[in-house]
């Protein structure tokens, strides 16, 4: 059986194009589980997965949970509000306590970049990053890639325009790194206050003009303004932002005829995307959600094959 050579999935940056291909192919094969009358396979029977969510999440958390259930894993759910974290326990102590329960995989979402790395250093379990601060959200990028591949047949050579709050978006980082590794032409678009200059070095072309980003684009990915991460004013107003960067039917004409529109959610209709675009036939936003489950099943399966093979020393 094929498996990843990694103990953990901390980010797309650590994956090779072959790793990505393997995950996508596996996800493709696992998609059909959802079409069965009994939507369950015994792949992870007897394995324990802990979902450790320090940040609010609906989509990602339920997607992981469903993926784990469909693979027959035993699941433990921890969230910041119900665990001892709210009593002041440090992440490290939480991790060590969980580790003592011998889980095979820990899925973590955390507001601090690098929190999964801290866990990976201290735990023998495989760590899956379900979003860390403004750093990475690797399973989101993988499900985006799966979605693009299923509609376009490939990623290589496509023009993919990512528009919005690039600076605060872990999805923008993971997507850009993944798409450029797979040979796409990635454009990152938004007001200059929301695109770090060095984003170019991650493999994206950057522009402040949405027209340039949309021009003959095969894929249009919209990101929301992350108001909760913005402690200062980056744009004068929502209205002005919409005027310059909102995805409207009219602007869509600039893209290719067979373009698809994506959004990692949650959407702010009327800010970065118009309803008639979000709900249009070329919008694949709900396909992304469906592909999320298959992608997470693939990642869980591939890492479980390797869990514990390379135990790391506690430091």
């Amino acid at each position: 059986m094929a498996s990843l050579t990694h103990k953990d999935l901390l980010g797309i940056a650590q994956l090779t194009a072959d790793d990505i291909q393997l995950i996508l192919d596996t996800a493709e094969a696992l998609k059909q589980v959802a079409d069965r009358p009994v939507k369950k396979v015994p792949t992870l029977r007897g394995k324990t997965v802990i979902n450790l969510f320090f940040e609010a999440s609906t989509r990602t958390r339920s997607s992981f949970e469903l993926a784990e259930k469909r693979l027959s894993a035993d699941i433990l759910n921890f969230s910041a509000s119900t665990s001892s974290v709210s009593k002041g326990e440090s992440l490290l102590d939480t991790a060590r306590n969980l580790e003592a329960m011998s889980p095979d995989i820990i899925v973590i979402r955390h507001a601090s970049a690098g929190a999964p790395h801290l866990l990976a250093r201290e735990c023998r379990s495989s760590i899956i990053n379900a979003g860390d601060g403004m750093h990475e959200h690797p399973t989101q990028a993988l499900l985006d890639a799966l979605t693009i591949r299923s509609f376009k047949g490939r990623i290589n050579g496509l023009k993919i325009a990512i528009t919005g709050d690039i600076a605060h978006s872990r999805v923008a980082r993971s997507d850009t790194i993944l798409f450029s590794k797979m040979g796409a032409e990635v454009w990152a678009c938004g007001p200059p206050t929301l695109i770090p200059w060095d984003f170019q070095k991650l493999g994206a072309k950057i522009t402040g003009h949405i027209e340039e980003a949309l021009d003959a684009a095969d894929v249009v990915m919209m990101l929301r303004l992350q108001l909760e991460r913005q402690h200062e004013a980056f744009v004068p107003s929502m209205r002005e932002y919409y005027n310059f960067y909102g995805l409207t039917r009219e602007r869509m004409r600039l893209a290719k005829k067979d373009t698809i529109v994506m959004h990692p959610g949650p959407m702010n209709r009327g800010v970065e995307i118009d309803s008639d675009v979000a709900d249009a036939p070329f919008s694949v936003i709900l396909n992304q959600v469906a592909n999320g489950v298959a992608t997470r099943m693939a990642v869980l399966y591939l890492l479980s094959g390797n869990a514990g093979l390379k135990p790391r020393k506690h430091s």
């Binding site: 940056a13 690098g114 860390d132 403004m134 980082r173 070095k201 991650l202």
Partner: peptide, 19 residues
């Protein structure tokens, strides 16, 4: 400096840490 935690540049961008 705001609430930055490391030098602003390529690595802060890569690591998703406030610069």
């Amino acid at each position: 400096a705001a609430d930055g935690v490391m030098h602003e540049g390529y690595y802060s961008t890569l690591l998703g840490l406030r610069g």
